[in-house]
Amino acid sequence: MRNSETLPLTNESDIIFARREVRSRGSEIGLSLVDVTKLVTACSELARNTVVYGGGGTVTIEPLSNGVRKGLRLIFEDQGPGIADLNLALTDGYTSGSGMGLGLSGARRLCNEFEIVSVVGQGTKVTVAKWK
């Protein structure tokens, strides 16, 4: 099993690279095409948030193993402005920018595990996981 890796997220090309990496690692551990597609889509949403709203940051890709079950965890971290009202940010259709407001709420629906920690003025950390 490959080790964890941390990739930079500072511009649009980084988002595409992170998507490709998540796709190849998801396929490697045997996620179905639908699950890989869901995880890559969640990655795209969260990576864009990191770049656009967080002012850049990183994504860490971690392999998971629980007995015979395998999975992949993605951790998005930025040192941006943070999110003041998490409940509002997780509401479908709410956006502080020009998006559709589906990034966070959609990513939560597409993954098996979802956690968000955000401190105003310090940054945001979003962790998602997809299990086989």
Binding site: L33, V36, T37, T41, E45, M100, G106, L110
Partner: peptide
């Protein structure tokens, strides 16, 4: 549109 993309889109909320 690929079927996996369609499934994901609807779950995403689009």
């Amino acid at each position: 549109m690929q079927p996996a993309v369609a499934i994901t889109l609807v779950e995403l909320g689009l």
